[in-house]
Design a protein around this nucleic acid. Structure first.
Lengths: 339, 339
DNA sequence: TGGTTCAGTGCAATCGATTGCACGCATTCT
DNA sequence: AGAATGCGTGCAATCGATTGCACTGAACCA
């Protein structure tokens, strides 16, 4: 379909060589052409409705002006904001994003990576926590430029953009302590995810500092169902043992809501709950969720900036950018009630 | 970066011409080459880690194997499932999706369209309700293949995939009537959106058929805020006039929740509310929302199938595919209470 | 045995844009 | 006036894969 108008067409119409047209249309090279020729060529190109052919250009310049964005699952509500943040920066610089979903499946991720490479993407933004270190090393060996977002970067050769999870967990716990809580459960995500590990460690450290009695339970995935299942199991085994839960993310926290209700208990009167991410609609849950708000859009935007700067030749090395998070207090946390 | 291994490299290593390598690697042309050569070439290509260069291929074949997906805003929760549905089909057929957000801005959409054209996308999936007819006509004139999803197709030359909104609205109203409701408000989205118009018309028709007393109020956008504002205004002017609300979508319904609460009323005891879309987490709102569930993933998948068939030369014409929807009854609807 | 046929492979053009190099001509310098 | 400078433009190679056409040699036929 379409795209009949080529550089050659414009050149013929203007009575000049294609090279002159090319130089006239490109802002970096227009200085090589006389001002009036530039004006004339541009006018004619406009009239003819010329559109550059990105594939031809990319073949010659070895640049696709496309960035691959690898996420686990777009329907997980924290990723759309990240993607839009990425996109906002890319778009303003003439790049496009190609978003792929791995569903946390290594084989799928491998295939998608190949597909992105075939498409000659200029760089990668990796938002999957599961990606194995060996895979990342492979990318790096192939000379692939990349930036990680929302996952820990230690040990990998790429820069990363993350939220300040540790401080988020700390403020969550401090908030709970202020409300009188002393026995607190951490419902953690799977240890394969770097964010889960970071939050878990921060929980343990802060709890020790504050002198709290804690328990840690791991959910198998970062989903409502897994959270509900893990919490149900915990409440079955240890009823009345804790007065608050800090969940690994909002999805798990939502699962905790369900489990608490299933056990005939109430939030926050019987058990306070804190989530993580402040994902869309967390304020509309029952009750509105107290959670740590992470700047996902800005994380995506920053990752894109970092990647573009890397592509433009700056060698940032394995840098780590930490963006501040804030505790959003809503109604899922309350004071410990005396009985 | 990378992609050093080309057809020529493989050809040299195998001691054959690039054309033989090309034919050996491509399943449609491998019959032209002797079986043993194919085997040998493939083995060598594998060993060398050959990856085809999509840009070079696309330049020659005039196909990018890329589909542009135009959505208003990925952070609107109904779009990720659509996109994933699209992606699931595309991926299995070797295509990739390039997703762009218009934010319902015509100028932005125009620019993005150009950008997609430059990238030589093989087709478009359009999920924006706002797109003006003139713009669509322009696409069609340029010979662009496209399919619309989640928006009415009447008058446009492209096939479309939509949910059966009319029947969804009808079952919503029937459900309310069964609960004793007679005075019902429809909080509609802006009339510029085809889905809003369809649902609005269906509401009026069904209400007439069922002999109901109705009001219709329009929200300025399909957002929580707009829904809340419109509903607040309505409740200020007409307190106690209705016992139920059918909203144009779940976002508006959520705004209705807020407005009802702000007026010191309760859902569903004072006013029942029904949404539309059954978007993720609508079951976790307070109260869990009764809503019409639309098969967004399947709509995306079907749109992709339609588009690919169109690209492969089948001329489906302006066909319209309607997928069934179902009412999901939860706790935001209840019987009319006597006072 | 001479002529066909055909399978297997190579040659070279092609897709559309970019870019190093060379050329022509006008201007400036000595 | 002759040489040097340099601006504006054109020529042609190039990026990597695909593909119509031509060629070679073996098998087959009469």
């Amino acid at each position: 379909m379409r795209n009949r108008v080529t550089l050659a067409d414009v050149a013929k119409a203007a009575g000049v060589n294609t090279s002159t047209v090319s130089r006239s249309l490109n802002s970096e090279t227009e200085g090589q052409v006389s001002a009036e020729t530039v004006k004339r060529v541009r006018k004619i190109a406009q009239e003819l409705g010329y559109t550059p052919n990105t594939m031809a250009r990319g073949l010659r310049t070895r640049k696709s002006m496309t960035i691959g964005v690898i996420v686990p699952d777009l329907t997980n509500p924290i990723f759309p904001p990240i993607v839009r943040g990425v996109d906002s920066v890319l778009q303003s610089r003439g790049y496009s994003a190609m978003v792929v979903n791995t569903d946390n499946n290594a084989a799928v991720e491998d295939a998608l990576f190949d597909s992105l490479m075939e498409r000659q993407v200029d760089g990668l933004i990796i938002a999957t926590g599961h990606t194995e270190r060996s895979m990342i090393a492979k990318y790096h060996n192939q000379g692939v430029k990349a930036v990680m977002v929302n996952r820990e970067a230690s040990g990998v050769p790429y820069p990363s953009v993350i939220g300040d999870d540790a401080s988020g967990i700390a403020s969550a716990l401090e908030h709970l302590v202020k409300l009188g809580h002393k026995k607190i459960l951490h419902l953690s995500g799977p240890a394969t995810l770097s964010t889960s590990r970071v939050r878990s460690t921060a929980f343990t450290d802060t709890a020790k500092r504050l002198g709290l009695t804690t328990k840690i339970v791991k959910a198998t995935t970062l989903s409502v169902e897994a959270g509900q299942m893990a919490m149900n199991k915990f409440l079955d085994a240890h009823p009345k043992e804790i007065t608050a839960v800090v969940a690994g993310n909002d999805l798990l926290a939502l699962g905790v809501y369900h489990a608490i209700r299933q056990h005939g208990l109430r939030t926050p009167q019987d058990i306070s709950v804190i989530g993580f991410n402040n994902m869309p609609f967390s304020e509309d849950f029952q009750p509105p969720m107290t959670t740590v708000s992470a700047p996902h859009f800005e994380m995506g935007a920053e990752a894109a900036r970092l990647l573009l700067s890397q592509i433009q030749g700056n060698e940032p090395g394995p840098r780590k950018i930490t963006l501040p998070v804030t505790l959003v207090v809503r109604e899922s946390t309350g004071p410990v009630l005396k009985k």
